Amino acid sequence: MKAAFLLLILFLLSALPTSAADSQVEGTGSAHIVELYSDIESFDVTFYSSGQEENLTLEVSLVRPDKDENVIAAQEFSTGSLPANTRVTKVGFWNVRNAERGAYTLKARLLEQGQVLSESEYDFVYGSNSASRLQLDDLVPNSEGISVVLSPKQASLFDIEYMLVDGHDVIYKTKTEKASLTSIPETFSASWGSLLENNKEYAGRVKVQVYSPSRGFITSTENFTARDDAEITDIYEDETGASATVLGRSQVPFEGSLAFSVYKVQETSGSGSSVFVESIRERVPVLLTDDDETVEVAWNERLTEGVYRLEIELFGNDGDVIERRETIIESDLAPSNAGEIIPDTKNETSNKSSGNGIPGFSINAGVAGLFLVFAFFKKLH
């Protein structure tokens, strides 16, 4: 009887729920932290979820572990939407003044309505004398993409991760694997694969992973303002019209226009002045980086004999002049022929009278008619 009673007690104890502390360590949700990185200036956290998650909370803190867990900086923000089966990276920036050399720890917790789903830590050392085989010399992000200059201290193989950052969100990411440097600096670049919003500020971030002599990272981030941009690459002009080819130079959709203006040069004027003739403005088809389109216009009337100045202006989305090109049109068309429609003379002989015959009736047509009449009567007989 006592044995049965003890078994009943053990069964009831095993059925009790686990404590809150244990549930925090194991995690109860499908979303979890899969990768962490931090240095003294910035951090990034990568999540993965097997199901769709909305508006979870990320808590991060920068701690000095050798000084009684002294929290140097802390942040908290929403993760927004986490799609299923997709790695999502968030980026943040520290603002640590007069940072001391030594060991630091990034602590991150992913929460849903106060309940911890996942937590992780990342340790790093700031101001150490450990020499990396690479040095990051310069970083330039813009509306087209991002470029980084790296110089080797020793021959190296490495990976470069390029990130386009909007606030905390990494909206585009691409990676170059097994890049190499041997003796001289080189520039490595990537184009953005995402559309940008005109006049909006973004950040370009690179994360270089070096594998030898030990696995380590070099990161750098620079802000930039996205702008629509394009350039005129080719023009054509004559007395009948003109054209210009425009090349897109930005991931901000270019929705500008081209203006073609013609001025006749006054040859008798010592100052070389010119008189306005006409101007035509046409919309440029929407362009992105490396897209090109040709815009053609025709003058209202063919330009008569003389020398003309053609001015082509490329206007951006905001109406600002992005580029201006000038060239010369030289016409040898006589003034009497300007605007004159040249008649079609292909069938001129068919409309002339042949001798004393009927006007407009050709000999060939007469012969063919007689032949048909003869054939008709022969068939009747």
Rank of each mutant, 00 (worst) to 15 (best):
A230H: 06
L333F: 08
S50P: 05
I33C: 07
H168P: 02
L287P: 02
L150I: 13
V252N: 13
L370E: 15
D290E: 11
K173A: 04
F47Q: 00
Q266K: 15
N351T: 15
N300T: 08
R227I: 08
V208A: 04
E76I: 07
N351P: 00
T345H: 14
E296I: 02
V265H: 05
F188S: 01
L258G: 06
E239I: 14
S271E: 07
I146D: 05
A108P: 03
Y236V: 08
P65N: 06
Q113Y: 10
S30L: 10
S269K: 08
T268G: 05
A298K: 12
I328W: 03
P17V: 08
G80K: 03
E197G: 11
D290Q: 11
L136C: 00
A368E: 14
K378S: 10
E121L: 08
F254V: 10
E340A: 15
E305Q: 13
F361D: 06
Y308K: 09
I218V: 03
G339D: 10
F188W: 01
N85P: 02
V277N: 00
L16Y: 12
I232N: 14
D44F: 08
A203E: 12
L195E: 12
P141C: 02
T182D: 07
F377D: 05
Y211A: 12
N55C: 05
Q75H: 15
R101P: 09
V91D: 00
I363G: 05
G366C: 10
F93Y: 02
N351Q: 14
E69G: 11
I184T: 13
L157R: 12
E161P: 00
E53W: 07
L196S: 09
